[in-house]
């Protein structure tokens, strides 16, 4: 048996996750419409105040991306049952590789999720265009950070009852820096302040999440 590099294994696993998503449509046909409904309901509750909605728009987009994006990361279609976990272990997939594969898959799906949600937010809220260029780096950076933290929470809550609710509770509070960074760049651009510090913040969060994931993966190997 030839030795497969861990990165290749992780990419193979991510490909498997994406294929499963294509078959089940959980992220795009369930979570994304749910997020769109949330964006739709806020104006109904707040009132059809166009300038107010334009101000709220970017913030609500990011809140929906983070809260509903967590649901993408704990989607049931990506769950490995005990039998699958056993096979993966026995073909030499380490927990770190499994976590990396899940994080890669999550990141791609979250990029797609943002691409679906963004036009909805744009149409419903007509936000000011100021600072939109900052979204170009921010969108993938948030996808990476949330994808990694989501993969971690997914492994921590793997096989537990109530995982679909527990996972989001574990992730949401620690994604606050991502939320502040993502909304901060737009605020900074609007008030003519430098936006790059927020970018640095989000990059730091991504790095911290990746390092933590790499450190803790081996502790999550399910052995009594």
């Amino acid at each position: 048996m030839s030795v497969v590099p861990p990165l290749t294994q992780a990419l193979v696993l991510a490909g498997k996750d994406l294929r499963l998503e294509r078959r089940t449509g959980e992220a795009f046909l369930v979570v994304a419409p749910f997020g769109a409904v949330a964006l739709f309901m806020v104006p109904l509750a707040v009132g059809a105040d166009t300038p107010l909605l334009a101000t709220l728009g970017p913030a609500l987009f990011w809140v929906v991306v983070l809260l509903f994006g967590v649901l993408v990361t704990v989607r049931g279609s990506a769950t490995d049952g005990p039998a699958q976990r056993a096979v993966l272990s026995l073909v030499g997939v380490t927990p770190r590789v499994r976590l990396a594969g899940r994080a890669f898959g999550n990141t791609v799906l979250l990029l797609g999720f943002q691409a679906v949600i963004a036009p909805v937010a744009l149409v419903l809220y007509a936000p000011e265009p100021a600072g939109w260029v900052w979204l170009l780096p921010m969108v993938p950076l948030v996808a990476v950070g949330l994808g990694t933290l989501g993969a971690l929470a997914d492994l921590v809550s793997e096989g537990l009852a109530g995982r679909a609710v527990l996972g989001p509770l574990l992730v949401a509070p620690i994604t606050v820096p991502l939320l502040l960074g993502a909304t901060g760049v737009l605020d900074a651009a609007r008030y003519g302040r430098p936006a790059w510090p927020w970018l640095v913040l989000v990059v730091t969060v991504d790095l911290a999440a990746a390092l933590l994931a790499a450190w803790c993966a081996r502790h999550l190997e399910d052995q009594s």
Binding site: M1, S2, V4, V12, R19, A83, G92
Partner: peptide, 25 residues
């Protein structure tokens, strides 16, 4: 094991190819 270690939403060939790629076959 008791239950076959297959991903329900992958075809039989995809299931086997997944394992093959993970072990470099």
């Amino acid at each position: 094991g008791h239950t076959a270690a297959l991903y329900d939403r992958l075809t039989l060939a995809e299931n086997l190819r997944l394992v093959a790629r993970l072990i470099g076959q």
